[in-house]
Structures are given as C-alpha cells and as structure tokens.
Write a protein that binds this DNA or RNA. Structure first.
Lengths: 122, 122
DNA sequence: TCCTCACATTGATGAGCGTCGATATAGAAT
DNA sequence: ATTCTATATCGACGCTCATCAATGTGAGGA
C-alpha cells in the first residue's frame, strides 16, 4: 500500500500524524443553524408537505375547510399543521367570516434554501 | 350511485358566497411526500445542518475526526448525525486506513428543493 | 501478538412530535 | 338569545428522536 502525499489531503505531522488540515472554515453559527432547522422542520412531515403543496399550488387562496378531506387527517390535525406552517412563515392566513383562507408566502421557501446554499458556498 | 349537489365539497350560498371555489388540484402523492419529508428531516436538526455546511463548505473532503470539536457534541452523536446525512444521500464517505472522509453529494440538496418546487408550480 | 487510536454501534433516558377525541371560540343565521 | 358551523385549542397517548456513556469493530504500529 503506497500512499503518496498528493493522493490525500492529509497534513501529516512528523510526530503526531495528523489526519486533518489545521483549521476548517467555521460551521454555521449555532443560532442561525437553529433558525434554519426550524424552517426545514416545518417541511419534514408528509402531511405538512402535502398541505403546503396544496396551498402553494393553487391560484389564489385556499379555504381551510377544503383541506381536511384531501389530506385524510382529522380536522384538529390539519389545523395543527397549518399552524406550524404559519409560524414557520411559509403560509399566511386571514379570517373572512366563518372561514379562514390560507395562501403561500412568496419567496419564503426559496429564502430557506438560499440561506443554506449561501452557507455552503461561503 | 347518485350524484347530488350535497356531494360537492362546495358550499355555495344563494348569493354566491362559498367557502371553496371548486375542486382543488390533487396534493402531493403520499408516497412522494413521505420521501421528500425524509430528505428535509435530515436538514431539520441544527447539529446536522452545521455538519452538512461544514462538509459542503470545504474544498475537497473532510475527516470525521475534525468535526467533533467544532460541533460541540460527543463523538457518538456526531457519528449518528453523519449516518443520517449519509442515508439521506446528502453526503458520501470513504474509509482510508484509520480515518473516514466525508464529502457532499453534488446536486442532492438542489434536487430536494427542486422536487418540492416542481410540485408547487405544477 | 498486544496495544492504541478512530469510528460505529448499543442501550438507556428524556424531550418532542403527530395524532385524535373532546372541548372551546368565533361568526352567521334564525 | 339560541343554534349551527367552521376553526382553534386542550389533554392524552404512543412513537420517534437527540444525546451520551459504554462497548464493539477495524485498522495500524511496536
């Protein structure tokens, strides 16, 4: 087994045999990572993904009453997931009389992925 | 089977006041939503986000030993998160002697977001 | 061979989440 | 006011996950 020094990005020290370059670029700040993770967590559930696709895929707005049946979950469960999406900033809502209407917040999804992409390409 | 107006999801009032416009476009298929959610779940943890940014942000590959200290978690915890990222297809790895090297799988992150974006714009 | 180091796995624990039934709240209509 | 409907909240259950100490595994080195 012949290991040439150009094969591996190893910075081997004479005494300690280091495996790694001296310093890595700093990772995401813990606070920013926590905020990003919260955003992705809102998309980490199949029911919420289907809800979000249902809302964002329509022209205009969607009434909450029309989302219970296609999702196949109980009304309290749908309401809970809508709240999670709302608190994640992915959807907005407005009460009009008896019903509540939801719509996707433009650019919020792309902002999430862009933030991670920026941290990766830094 | 009889199709009556009570079968419709639309509750159209006499003056045209309705809560639901008509049929909604079908949501994400449950199977596709589950697969997507699994991918986003890998990014829904601050420790894993920092790990992924650490790996994808470097030039070349990263030794596992160099990720324990910057993350501030125990070695088993880091190993667990690396496994989750690996099984989500976000990173790949190779053992070289004593050490294990990790690198980001190109295009996997953008594929995730593109799939959701396609479902939304359909 | 035995020892050491790097990494993975196991087992346990505590916290958090998805789910639903029951209930509360808000608005509209009678 | 009473009642009905749509939505939100509460309480509880079961399950999953993040975490770490202890242990296992696999690869050099003496």
């Amino acid at each position: 087994m012949n290991i040439s020094q150009t094969d591996l990005p190893v910075e081997a020290g004479p005494d300690g045999a280091a495996c790694c370059p001296a310093e890595l670029i700093p990772p995401l700040e813990a606070a920013e990572a926590a905020e990003l993770a919260q955003g992705f967590a809102a998309l980490a559930d199949p029911a919420r993904l289907r809800l979000f696709a249902l809302i964002a895929g329509q022209e205009g707005q969607v009434c909450a009453c029309s989302m219970v049946e296609p999702l196949g979950k109980s009304q309290p469960t749908v309401s809970h997931h809508l709240k999670v999406l709302y608190e994640a900033g992915l959807v907005d809502r407005e009460r009009r009389g008896t019903w509540v209407w939801y719509w996707a917040v433009p650019g919020r999804l792309s902002a999430l992925t862009a933030t991670l992409g920026r941290a990766v390409n830094a």
